[in-house]
Design a protein around this nucleic acid. Structure first.
Lengths: 135, 135
DNA sequence: GTAAAACCTGACGTTGACGTCAGAGGCAAG
DNA sequence: CTTGCCTCTGACGTCAACGTCAGGTTTTAC
């Protein structure tokens, strides 16, 4: 598979694939004339990279995680790295959830036609979340 | 309150506060000599701005949301904007949750000492998540 | 055989949220 | 009054993940 095919198949740009290689995230076999050739499995690898990017990981972090995730490396350092990133994502999810609940509360207020919108203190958000979570 | 005080109190840099003003997110009263003075409520406003930044909103979006959240504006457009951003955050939470579950699965595999780490197909993640979610 | 399409490297451009520096003015303490 | 800290504006620097362009080579299609 050539770089254009991989780009089409995985939905990222050719430039991005070359950038991934530059960052050590994706390797390619080179033909005699220097053109990149990828195995079929490269599409999965690219998907994985995209997923990790979407989770807010940097190239450097992904480069550290990948051998541990794909090349079956299993050391104390790799496990620490994995759990650290997992915890980071957990914290990010928690922060986003709080913000979403805030927005939901504001939207609810906007729903009543004669009321203005206003930001709401944390404790009120918590109370409201409990309320709507209660069956 | 002067800009340095607000910076110390809200934990952001002086530069960031000036940037917020430039972006129309934060206004200041000016003394005769041109120095910025803020009311106590500015600290809350800065917190709110930080929260929205942390949720991935851009300055432009925050500038559009703020009057609707703090200045009690309630129009169809503002409601649409609010729900759109809420949905965006929801989607981001879902993506992060999937990535975290993936990482959890990899970490579990790493836990068994003789097994290598490996990326795991989606359906296996789902099965595992169901399993650990089942009491 | 030749034209179009795809590929190569190298290098500069972009965007957002600031950091940082320069040079000048403002303000309370001693 | 001057010392020292804070503040001002304006402008350039940064970093990451690419976009884009130039100029040249390779592969594919007819």
């Amino acid at each position: 598979m050539r770089i254009g095919d991989l780009a089409a198949q995985s939905g990222v740009s050719v430039r991005a694939l070359r950038y991934y290689e530059e960052q050590g995230l994706l390797e390619a076999n080179r033909s005699g004339s220097g053109q990149r050739h990828y195995p079929e499995s490269a599409a999965d690898r690219v998907q994985l990279i995209q997923t990790l990017y979407a989770a807010g990981l940097s190239s450097r972090t992904i480069a550290e995680l990948l051998p541990c995730v794909e090349a079956k490396v299993n050391t104390p350092e790799s496990r620490a790295l994995l759990t650290a990133e997992r915890d980071r994502i957990d914290a990010q999810i928690a922060a986003l959830t709080r913000t979403r609940d805030h927005l939901d509360a504001v939207i609810l207020l906007c729903g009543s036609p004669d009321s203005g919108c206003a930001w709401i203190p944390d404790q009120d958000i918590a109370a409201q979340a409990n309320h709507s979570a209660t069956p």
